[in-house]
């Protein structure tokens, strides 16, 4: 199937000469949740802004469902909803007026029933007649989400949607995003909470200094780059690692009571069985054991250090 978004050799140089996006190649699949990760200033917002039409593209091309974002801007933009990183919304308007405005702006006829449902889903219905200036930061962010969804887009960009949102609300938000995905909406989000990406995303993209460093299926990424560790609690301290075990990636803790075995997540099961058998042969006894797996965060930090 044709990707819903294709970014081809995209460059962006800001006036002043800063090269914010460098030869970006990216494809977003239909109906997926794509998490774009990267440190501050990596170019996440710039990339989203180019796709949404807020910032002029430089060299390169962006297609939304096959439509060029410059030439066919109308058709392309109708499909897209954007929740910006900044909380910019006209504060003297009411919640109801602002979502009505957004829907009209995107060329859709009025549909009060849909907007009511939308506000109810975002727990904003009670606040519909409040001026936005009277809302809290988390509510304002939900108003921005409501505005972005007011014209029923099938592609949704969320630029750090959970910044400044409390735990409970964040959970609600993710539930809503999952519901949207289930209804067929493609979601591209950025976040600095990597656990979120780990939880939510189907695929992960990492951008650093304007370059896409990696795009991977989340599960295979975690398998491929994820490290596992098996920690054995020893009955008796072990002064040195015996020569017979030298071809295993083993480490000894300082108190000599723990033996730590590091292995790739995708390595064969047999390695562990073999290791344990060897330990038995060598009469090294252990009282307890546990395994740990590196998180996406560890992978992410590792990647950035590599490309730094």
């Amino acid at each position: 199937m044709q990707p819903i978004i294709q970014v081809k050799q995209l460059n962006k140089i800001y006036p002043g000469g800063f090269h914010a996006l460098k030869n970006i190649e990216l494809e977003i699949r239909r109906g997926e949740i794509f998490a774009l990760l990267g440190p501050n200033g990596a170019g996440k917002t710039t990339l989203i802004s180019v796709i949404c039409g807020i910032v002029n593209p430089g060299e390169g091309q962006v297609l939304v469902d096959g439509m060029d974002i410059v030439r066919d801007y109308r058709q392309a933009r109708q499909r897209i909803g954007l929740v910006p990183q900044e909380l910019s919304v006209s504060i003297f308007e009411t919640v109801w007026d602002t979502v009505t405005f957004s829907r009209g702006l995107f060329g859709k006829p009025r549909d009060p029933a849909y907007l009511e449902q939308l506000l109810r889903d975002l727990s904003l219905w009670d606040k519909r007649n409040n001026k936005i200036i009277t809302l809290s930061g988390g509510m304002k962010r939900r108003v921005l989400i409501a505005k972005a969804l007011s014209h029923q887009p099938d592609i949704l960009f969320l630029d750090e949607p959970t910044a400044g949102v409390d735990v409970e609300l964040r959970r609600d938000m993710w539930q809503m995003i999952r519901r949207l995905r289930d209804s067929g909406v493609t979601i591209i989000l950025t976040t600095h909470y990597i656990e979120e990406a780990e939880d939510m995303a189907d695929r992960i993209g990492v951008i650093n200094k304007g370059e896409i460093v990696l795009v991977e299926d989340k599960n295979s990424l975690m398998q491929k780059l994820g490290k596992k560790q098996l920690t054995l609690q020893l009955q008796h301290p072990l002064p040195t690692i015996p020569a017979e075990l030298h071809n295993y990636n083993l480490q000894l803790s300082e108190d000599q009571h723990q033996l730590i075995f590091s292995y790739d997540s995708d390595s064969e099961h047999k390695v562990i069985v073999n290791l344990l058998r060897k330990l038995e042969d060598l009469e090294i006894e252990f009282t307890d054991l546990h395994t740990t797996q590196s998180s996406l965060e560890d992978i992410f930090v590792g990647l950035l250090e590599e490309t730094a």
């Binding site: 807020i54 933009r77 910019s88 006209s90 995107f106």
Partner: peptide
């Protein structure tokens, strides 16, 4: 000037309007 100043112009720029 107001939308430019407050940042709400993002919505106009991202909308399918000429």
């Amino acid at each position: 000037y107001m939308p430019k100043f407050s940042g709400t112009i993002y919505e106009i720029l991202s909308a399918p309007v000429s």
